[in-house]
């Protein structure tokens, strides 16, 4: 780590920019503490995922071209979101005449926890966080980016978020009954299949509540926005933090 000071661009998803600036700030500060030179390239908008998942990938070429132009000149692009990273890597449409830049860019876009464990090669984080924490695995991070072993697969268990959180002094990692079931956010699914989305969210919340979780964390604010929205409406006392917020707070 001594001589390795990568030039990292922060990729802040649009809804994080608009609704959760504190998550952007925590990501920035955390990466700096871990020795990165971090900048936030101006003019970021949205990666285009809401459109693509709704069936309009073909209408995101302009958005994608803009994304490539903003980020292509950095060593790494890091986002506090598995979902947006997966979209950029797998579902952003090929932009004619930019294929080479796009391919190179996709190889250097990372979700925050995988960047810390796989690129910065952080083995353990020293810090303190005295809470009972439940981890919500976002599906796009979980099964899309393979940030953790999948409960469906016969593989050696691993979990990149747990690797980072697990060593924090005082942090009580809670084992859930269903470790990686979807929360029902699903982008436009949250409104087109409202009844199902709410039912799935309530079921996820219940799993955390039954295990006396104090703080639900995760790598995607979209899932958390959905779960927190239901919890707040129903008057639940449970708290929500993005994993970047916990790590940034814990290692000061």
């Amino acid at each position: 780590m001594e001589n390795f000071k990568p030039n990292v661009a922060l990729f802040i998803p649009c809804y994080v920019d608009q609704f959760y600036p504190k998550v952007g700030i925590a990501t920035l500060e955390l990466l700096e503490k871990l020795g990165c030179k971090v900048s936030f390239p101006a003019g970021q908008t949205c990666c285009g995922q809401p459109l693509a998942n709704a069936g309009y990938e073909r209408d995101t070429i302009g958005t994608t071209r803009h994304f490539v132009a903003i980020f292509k000149n950095f060593d790494y692009v890091v986002a506090p979101s598995g979902s947006c990273v997966l979209h950029v890597k797998e579902h952003s449409p090929r932009v004619p005449s930019l294929e080479k830049e796009q391919k190179e860019l996709h190889d250097k876009v990372f979700e925050l926890t995988e960047f810390i464990t796989d690129i910065l090669k952080v083995e353990r984080l020293e810090g303190r966080f005295q809470h009972r924490v439940g981890y919500h695995a976002s599906c796009h991070g979980q099964r899309g980016l393979r940030l953790a072993s999948s409960s469906e697969l016969n593989q050696i268990p691993f979990n990149k978020a747990r690797k980072l959180l697990g060593n924090l002094e005082g942090l009580d990692w809670v084992e859930l009954d269903r470790t990686d079931e979807c929360c029902g956010f699903g982008g436009t699914f949250a409104v087109t299949e409202e009844a199902l989305s709410i039912r799935m969210g309530r079921d996820r919340l219940e799993d955390h509540l039954q295990h006396q979780v104090e703080i639900i964390t995760g790598g995607d604010m979209s899932c958390i926005m959905h779960l927190e929205g239901i919890a707040t409406r129903e008057g639940q006392k449970i708290k929500f933090m993005h994993i970047a917020e916990i790590l940034n707070q814990a290692i000061t």
Partner: peptide
């Protein structure tokens, strides 16, 4: 095809 969150569990089982 919209009755899904694209969670990917189906592909893994």
């Amino acid at each position: 095809p919209f009755a899904s969150t694209l969670c990917g569990s189906c592909s893994d089982v």
